[in-house]
Amino acid sequence: MPFPVRFDHVSFDYGQKPVLTDITCSLAAHSVVAVLGRSGSGKSTLLELINGMVMPKAGTVYVFDGALDYGNVTALRRKIGYGVQNTGLFPHLTVGENIGLPGTISGMPSPERRRRVAELMELVQLDGSYADKYPHALSGGEQQRVSLCRAMFSNPPILLMDEPFSSLDYSTKRHIYTHFQTLQKASPRTVVLVTHDWEEAMLLADAFLWIDDAHLRASGDRAALDSIKDAYLQRI
């Protein structure tokens, strides 16, 4: 399965307003793909097309082995990690419960779940005592690490992240990037990273897609990303 995510002439719109038009592309396994574009360009929708939260108006989305089955998206979503802007942590659950939630919903026994939580927290250097705290007691950077842990919990072959780091300050970001890279190196997966930040893409991504005014304007590897820098920054 060299390309676990493929778009084949996919379009989506909200009535009159086109959001994505005729997108065709393939996302390689074990690589971090940055989806670039300014806000409102349709890049978040591209992400939601992958886990079936949005259905294309035309074209086909292929995830894993076949065309996406919209009648059974729940099972699919459990094999895809999902993280959003501002961490998306549940305030009523402790850090440990938040990280272990993907295990809870798929019925993983609790000792096994706790082991996995501890393992992930160690990987991103979170103190074990944090497991019983509520997210609001943690700093922004710590919360982001918790969010990363949760997205990685089921060791999903695909990880979707929508502007996960955008609300963090610069030094915290640098710190998180390191954790992200550590996790990715430990068990490589297909990461779709939606971001407007060219530098972030340059630092973390192996490949990129540039969505501009609903169209796929450019795509390619890191070298290609470097070459579009000026054009991209002008559009932002």
């Binding site: 998206v73 895809i80 549940f90």
Partner: peptide, 21 residues
């Protein structure tokens, strides 16, 4: 709504979304 979206995107069933979130 952001939390509802996360619950959905994680693969929670309707009942789980209600019960857990």
């Amino acid at each position: 709504p952001a939390l509802k979206k996360v619950a959905l995107g994680m693969g929670m069933s309707r009942w789980q979304q209600l019960r857990l979130v």
